[in-house]
């Protein structure tokens, strides 16, 4: 199943709407709650990143019984040094983003922690594409 959503850059009032919709879909599909949590936490971090840094973007989510693949494509400034951006504590967030409770340089590492695979490609002054891949039902039962 494929689902598409739009993200408005800079609009903090609606940041998280797409993640919320996808969470509802995953619940309806009876995906394990531990998988839902790591999927939506990573996705929400990614959605907030688009709102915080880009002019706008699109989310497409592909969901089947064994895996969830989510691709976020934004139009924005891009990431000049992805390795640096992945470092815990590194952030280029504005004071406005920090006032929203983010911008501590924790989003990308937390996205990586919650995904099974994460791929980032970026072109400066054009935009960034993030792919989040989750394999379902792999968490040990007592986790």
């Amino acid at each position: 199943m494929l689902f598409d959503f739009e993200i408005q850059g800079g609009d903090f009032a609606t940041a998280g709407n797409a993640s919320s919709q996808i969470k509802k879909i995953l619940k309806q599909l009876n995906v394990d709650h531990r998988d839902i949590k790591r999927i939506v936490v990573a996705l929400y971090e990614a959605e907030v990143n688009v709102v915080a840094h880009a002019f706008g973007g699109k989310i497409s989510a592909e969901i089947n019984t064994t895996e969830v693949r989510i691709r976020l494509v934004d139009e924005g400034p891009g990431i000049p040094d992805i390795e640096l951006a992945m470092q815990q504590g590194y952030s280029t967030a504005s004071p406005e983003v920090r006032e929203m409770g983010f911008g501590a340089g924790m989003g990308l590492p937390n996205m990586k922690k919650n995904t099974d695979e994460m791929h980032i490609t970026s072109v400066v002054d054009e935009g960034t594409t993030v792919e989040l891949i989750f394999f379902l039902n792999q968490t040990p039962p007592n986790h």
């Binding site: 903090f12 907030v48 929203m100 409770g101 983010f102 924790m106």
Partner: peptide
């Protein structure tokens, strides 16, 4: 007050105390 820290938690049955009163 830092939502990034909250999003790293794996604990269930949690109450959050914060001074950050916004949608996020």
């Amino acid at each position: 007050d830092l939502m990034s820290d909250v999003l790293t938690l794996e604990t269930d049955n949690l109450v959050l105390l914060t001074g950050l009163a916004n949608n996020q």
